[in-house]
Design a protein around this nucleic acid. Structure first.
Length: 415
RNA sequence: GCGGUAUUGGUGAAGUGGUAACACGGUAGAUUGUGGCUCUAUUAUGCGUGGGUUCGAUUCCCACAUACCGCCCCA
């Protein structure tokens, strides 16, 4: 047997249905906020992600699905969407409009060790908004993510926020951390010693050392924010209160991608057994990325939701998508011509219709009816075909009624 | 990339160095045009894949694959 590649996922049955439901639900939700759907390539030149996501991030360092194409160009399967959306935004000169609000969904790829809620090919649904820098807007973006997830049926979501500050405050903070940690390195775990060189911020996130006094007493981001960033963060918190989004400040929330500035946030599902996979949404502001890739100063903010994780969490929370129940079952008892004509007619009139294609016995077909639980069963046998009528059985009252072929649609529409 | 656990039919699973319980589901019949209950029959020449040990392996050994857990990291 050929098995699916490591870290990929088959979705079918209830989970497949939930997956589809979740995507269409979130799409229509975003349309309400006047966000527009964008589609970008599944792979891009590797250079884009190296510059966009950042060479110091693990995503670029060890998780990229890159390959040489037949002309020896280095390509990478998208590990996330933001860099690609920014590229699209620049390449098509969409900045001629002052503001742009986009949403997207599709597969992303990271070469990781898989676990539940963590795959090598996974689906992201997210938004990116360009041209607006306003804490009230940041709050709205966070509230969109929060509301969508809540509306879908997840309770006990926690929104965690933090501010990384603008470039200068971020650098000042990093330097402060380096100075603070340098004499204490021997007391930190091995990973943290590496992080000291690659990305000091991440030391704050360490799980091994999380109870370590050294971390608890480390300098806090907020003390290194510029006046401007500090005020921005304060207004953001006010705005979140106005929009009734419950949140927690988490000063060790730093995010793993290099491009974030000022506002960062994550949405976590508390009741989950999924451990790290309970982070269902993450995002933040990235005011320097457009300039980094296109030499134009345009502020931007976005977030991304892990759709497979969302499906898992909805499953855990026992949330079921709305089911398209079958309206009518056509019981064909050896009268193919007449029966299939009626099936087609019903579907053309908008009834969700099912029938038997295997010439099963009446008893077997009634068994199928039990699973489908339609509102009505149309019985079509020899008598009906000859007499040009059908027997309509009400599946609730079990009553039968003869209805002429010509009056069938009208009759079914009435009841 | 590192460490650990697991892998038996459509599903949940029991089991043993000598040839795969049980339950659910599926199919057919009892019941030739009215079901959902009940009863009966049937449903893996095969126990992740490939090697090895053995008279004989699903059971022991090795490798690989995949899943899950922890780390790393992230959605």
């Amino acid at each position: 047997m050929i098995q699916k590649p490591k870290g990929t996922l088959d979705l079918y049955g209830l989970e497949g249905k939930t997956y589809e439901y979740v995507l269409s639900y979130m799409s229509s939700f975003l349309n309400m906020y006047n966000y527009n759907y964008v589609k970008i390539p599944t792979f891009e030149t590797s250079e884009l992600y190296k510059r966009g996501v950042g060479e110091s991030s693990d995503i670029v360092n060890k998780e990229m699905y890159d390959f040489l194409d037949k002309s020896d160009r280095s390509m990478t399967l998208r590990p996330e969407f933001t860099a690609g959306v920014v590229r699209m935004f620049l390449e098509n000169k969409l900045y001629s409009k002052e503001t742009n609000k986009f949403y997207y969904y599709g597969s992303a790829f990271r070469y990781e060790r898989p676990q539940s809620g963590r795959y090598r090919e996974f689906t992201q649904f997210g938004v990116e908004a360009f041209g607006i820098k306003n804490p009230y807007f940041d709050a709205e973006v966070i509230s969109i993510a929060y509301k969508m997830l809540t509306d879908l049926g997840l309770k006990d979501l926690v929104v965690q926020i933090n501010s990384l500050g603008d470039n200068s405050s971020r650098e000042a903070y990093k330097n402060a951390l380096r100075e603070y940690f340098k004499p204490k390195l021997d007391n930190l775990c091995e990973d943290c010693k590496n992080r000291f060189n690659t990305n000091v911020l991440r030391i704050l996130d360490c799980k091994v050392d999380k109870d370590n006094e050294i971390l608890k007493n480390a300098p806090k981001t907020l003390n290194y924010l510029s006046e401007e960033s500090k005020e921005y963060f304060d207004i953001l918190k006010t705005a979140l209160n106005v929009l009734e989004v419950p949140f927690e400040e988490n000063t060790s929330l730093v995010r793993g991608l290099d491009y974030y500035t000022d506002t960062v946030f994550e949405i976590v599902y508390k009741d989950s057994n999924l451990g790290n996979a309970s982070v269902v949404c993450g995002g933040g502001r990235y005011d320097n990325l457009v300039n980094e890739l296109g030499k134009i100063n345009i502020p931007a903010i976005g977030f991304s939701i892990g759709v497979e994780r969302l499906v898992l969490l909805l499953n855990e929370a026992n949330v079921k998508p709305i089911d398209n129940k079958v309206d009518i079952y056509v019981m064909n008892l050896g009268q193919d011509k007449y029966a299939y004509e009626i099936v087609d007619m019903l579907r053309n009139s908008g009834f969700i219709t099912e029938t038997d294609y295997l010439n099963k016995s009446m008893k077997a077909q009634f068994k199928l009816v039990d699973d489908l639980n339609p509102d009505y069963i149309l019985i079509i046998g020899e008598d009906e075909a000859k007499g040009n009528y059908v027997t309509v059985k009400d599946n609730l009252t079990k009553e039968n009624k003869k209805v002429e072929f010509d009056e069938l649609i009208e009759y079914l529409s009435m009841i």
